[in-house]
């Protein structure tokens, strides 16, 4: 085996061309793809980080909202309780007032009826007394006339 400088030159040229071609058509695109992947991974990590933060913020927000809602519910229940107590009191008060009013009305009615009855009675009693009086008077008149008659009769008889 002898050294052949032509072979050396051919090898150098061939390797140079191969390097150029590989660099241009194979490794260049591959490098750019690897760079893109690096970017993609970086981006995705950033996105993951930001979405994690966002999720945390939302979580806190929701927790606050939940607390708020719970507070509101408590206040509503409290309010309802007071309202219901008040309403019940009101109802009782109204009922009491109504009852009193009814009782008063009834008393008034009774009074007026009583007065009416008394008045009626009075009138009746008056009539009856008049009747009695008239009857008595009638009777008295009759007696007098009777007596007169009697007396007249007797006189007539005496005189005879």
């Amino acid at each position: 085996m002898a050294w052949q400088w032509e072979s050396t030159v051919i090898a150098m040229v061939a390797f140079g061309i191969l390097y150029f071609l590989l660099n241009k058509y194979a490794f260049g695109p591959l490098f750019s793809i690897m760079e893109q992947r690096r970017q993609l991974v970086l981006e995705q990590m950033n996105t993951a980080e930001s979405s994690r933060k966002q999720a945390e913020a939302q979580m806190a927000e929701q927790k606050a909202a939940l607390d708020q809602a719970r507070k509101e519910a408590y206040s509503i229940i409290e309010q309802a309780r007071t309202t219901s107590t008040k309403t019940a009191d009101d109802i009782v008060q109204t009922a009491k007032a109504e009852a009193t009013r009814l009782k008063d009305d009834a008393l008034k009615d009774i009074e007026s009826e009583k007065n009416k009855a008394i008045a009626a009675l009075r009138t009746e009693v008056g009539g009856i007394s008049v009747k009695i009086a008239s009857k008595i008077i009638e009777k008295q008149i009759d007696e007098q006339s009777q007596e007169q008659l009697v007396n007249q009769y007797l006189k007539e008889v005496g005189s005879k």
């Binding site: 052949q4 032509e6 072979s7 051919i10 090898a11 061939a14 390797f15 061309i17 191969l18 071609l21 590989l22 058509y25 194979a26 490794f27 695109p29 591959l30 793809i33």
Partner: peptide
């Protein structure tokens, strides 16, 4: 003086290398 076997061999391995790399990408 061009060694034909060397020339063939270099060409073939260069082509195989390039084709393999092209296939990969």
């Amino acid at each position: 003086n061009i060694d034909l076997s060397m020339l063939i061999a270099i060409l073939v391995s260069g082509i195989i290398t390039f084709v393999l790399a092209r296939l990969a990408v």
